[in-house]
């Protein structure tokens, strides 16, 4: 069935709300407004205000309340409008949700799902364009997911809700209008990376909003006779390094594409893992294409220049291969 990423997210939440009375959705403008990205359109009417809870602008408060509700036996889906505003809730996520299981000596688990949009590309300037998935992926105690396909948008929520620990799901804002085919089976795991395109010459490793750009780059490279493999991390924490190493072993070269800034990025972590554990599989130094180290500027040409783009990926691969 053909559908949009937005609709896939909506269906996944609809299914969860229908299947399990403990599941509820809360966040800013999820109810009456229908969701900032219209992912919960119609839910308020269907499930009522007890389970579709509009919150005030109180990110720290309602994310924390989600943690408490999870402790108390519910299965909250907390929607934070964007990763930018999640910084106001970071304390609750890092100091409480992520740490509770461990610091209580294993007595309390937090089965919480936090969803948020992320990323740049719409000329929203510095405060609305962050891509901080890598920060979250730094934190032990949470799982971090980045659905980049219709299937993952549809499939990742159920296992996230079934997980006994906090799961943070990043939906890149540029993906909501993406359309694609959804198969019959909507089940998926939240443990593995996925090879999205097979190739032999180089491995392009990416996630989230950079996947379509990376696939476009791979297509262009194919036109030039360069056969690139594309690996979608899908799960940013814990990393499925086995899939990465297997691909690198085959292609002997890797370029990481990450919308985060280069310094301290998730790309840096992926490269370090490969360098630590698969160094001798490599025929060339590792490379990456990240955002330029600048707060994201408003002007269109500047924003485009600041972000990873297909031509930059192509150029990086060609440089690596010397072609």
């Amino acid at each position: 069935m053909r559908m949009s990423y937005r609709e896939a997210i909506r269906q996944a939440m609809h299914e969860a709300l229908t299947a399990d009375p403990r599941v509820f959705l809360m966040g800013e403008d999820v109810g009456k407004y229908g969701g900032t990205y219209a992912c919960s359109k119609g839910f308020l009417e269907e499930f009522g205000p007890e389970r579709i809870r509009d919150t005030p602008l109180s990110e720290l408060g309602f994310v924390g309340a989600g943690i408490g509700a999870a402790l108390g036996g519910l299965r909250p889906i907390v929607e934070v409008m964007t990763v930018n505003f999640s910084l106001l809730a970071l304390d609750q996520i890092v100091n409480t949700a992520a740490a509770l299981r461990h610091m209580s000596g294993g007595q309390f688990s937090v089965p919480l799902v936090v969803r948020m949009s992320t990323g740049a590309g719409r000329q929203l300037a510095a405060q609305h364009s962050h891509s901080l998935e890598g920060w979250y992926a730094h934190i032990p105690g949470i799982k971090v997911l980045a659905p980049a396909t219709i299937a993952d948008a549809r499939g990742m929520l159920a296992p996230a809700l079934a997980d006994p620990d906090p799961v943070v799901i990043f939906e890149h804002a540029q993906l909501y209008n993406l359309e694609g085919e959804l198969g019959e089976n909507v089940q998926c795991d939240i443990a593995s990376a996925a090879v999205r395109r097979e190739g032999a010459a180089v491995t392009l490793i990416t996630y989230g909003g950079s996947l379509p750009k990376t696939l476009a780059a791979a297509d262009e490279l194919a036109g030039a006779g360069i056969d690139a493999e594309v690996v979608d991390l899908r799960v940013l924490r814990p990393l499925d390094t086995a899939t990465l190493f297997a691909s690198v072993k085959k292609t002997r070269r890797a370029v990481v594409v990450d919308e985060g800034w280069k310094s301290g990025s998730l790309a840096a972590e992926v490269m370090a893992r490969i360098a630590e554990e698969a160094f001798f599989e490599l025929d060339a130094p590792l490379k990456r294409v990240c955002s330029e180290e600048v707060p994201i500027p408003y002007a269109r040409h500047m924003e485009e220049a600041a972000l990873p783009q297909a031509p930059k990926i192509v150029a990086a691969v060609r440089e690596l291969l010397g072609k």
Binding site: L57, F85, L88, L124, A125, Q127, H128, P295, Y298, A299
Partner: peptide, 27 residues
């Protein structure tokens, strides 16, 4: 007034002591 880096949400102007355009609610 912000050299095109800010856009509609981030107008700044030192000369008039206009400290911006903050797009984080409450920021």
């Amino acid at each position: 007034c912000s050299r095109g880096r800010g856009g509609s949400m981030h107008l700044f102007d030192a000369a008039t002591r206009f400290y911006g355009g903050n797009a984080i609610v409450g920021g």
